[in-house]
């Protein structure tokens, strides 16, 4: 049992101990410092989820007061409508070895799977109205692979017109520059119900070259439902 009445050495302030006190204060200041820098994560691809839409922020509110997404939920795009269910749907015929699945991504009507090795993807997107117009969309595609935009004259020169049972389908074929070339073959057609359809084959130049003739036969087979 310790002797309660025996005094222990008294604490005396010294420069060292004062410094320790101030130092602990400075250290606690540093605790709150967060450096701003670019972070890197390697994550598995998000599995497509049928019901998922814009992800809400949902600041905490009492339970029972929320029955839907809050107004102005981030990720909502007020002026970009969801993929429409077109009234006059397009149909097409797939070559041997190709398959199709509905959706498969944001704003996507359908995704084709091609029987070729390598990085390539074939998609169908349908948007209401002119969807920004042909020139804007073609330049957006060109910008995606680092190519400069066209003017109207350049657009006309680059265009190939396919006569299909659904009407005139404009086809464009671009290849990027650089050591690893990317290529895009895109078809653009407006249907009588006022929608605009985009059928695109994109990927590395070599596999796109192999798949192009099959893709062109898909474009040529386009007809109204």
């Amino acid at each position: 049992m310790p002797n309660l009445s025996a005094p222990l050495p008294r604490f005396r302030p010294t420069p060292l101990k004062t410094s320790l006190l101030i130092g602990s204060g400075l250290l606690s200041l540093a605790l709150g410092c967060r450096s701003d820098e670019v972070s890197h994560f390697r994550v598995p691809k998000e599995a497509p989820f049928a019901q998922s839409g814009p992800r809400p922020a949902m600041p905490p509110m009492p339970m029972g007061e929320r029955t839907g997404e809050p107004a102005g939920a981030p990720g909502a795009t007020p002026d970009m409508p969801p993929p429409p269910a077109p009234r006059a749907s397009l149909k097409w015929s797939l070559p041997r070895g190709w398959s199709e699945q509905p959706g498969g991504g944001t704003m996507r009507f359908a995704t084709f799977k091609a029987p070729f090795e390598g990085k390539l993807e074939a998609t169908v997107v349908v948007l209401p109205g002119q969807a920004g117009g042909e020139l804007a969309n073609v330049n957006r595609w060109r910008g995606q692979i680092g190519l400069p935009g066209y003017d109207e004259a350049g657009l006309a020169k680059a265009r190939t017109v396919l006569r299909t049972k659904a009407g005139a389908l404009n086809v464009y074929d671009f290849t990027s520059e650089g050591q690893v070339k990317s290529r895009m073959v895109a078809g653009y057609i407006s249907t009588p119900d006022g929608n605009t359809w985009f059928l695109k084959l994109t990927g590395d130049a070599a596999p796109v070259a192999k798949a192009k003739s099959d893709f062109m036969s898909i474009l040529g087979s386009v007809r109204l439902d």
Partner: peptide
């Protein structure tokens, strides 16, 4: 690769391709 508008208010992401 041009000047892009990015915003929390834009739902669909945008993409570009560089060297594959």
């Amino acid at each position: 690769y041009g000047v892009w508008l990015v915003s929390v208010g834009l739902g669909a992401p945008q993409s570009f391709i560089h060297e594959g």
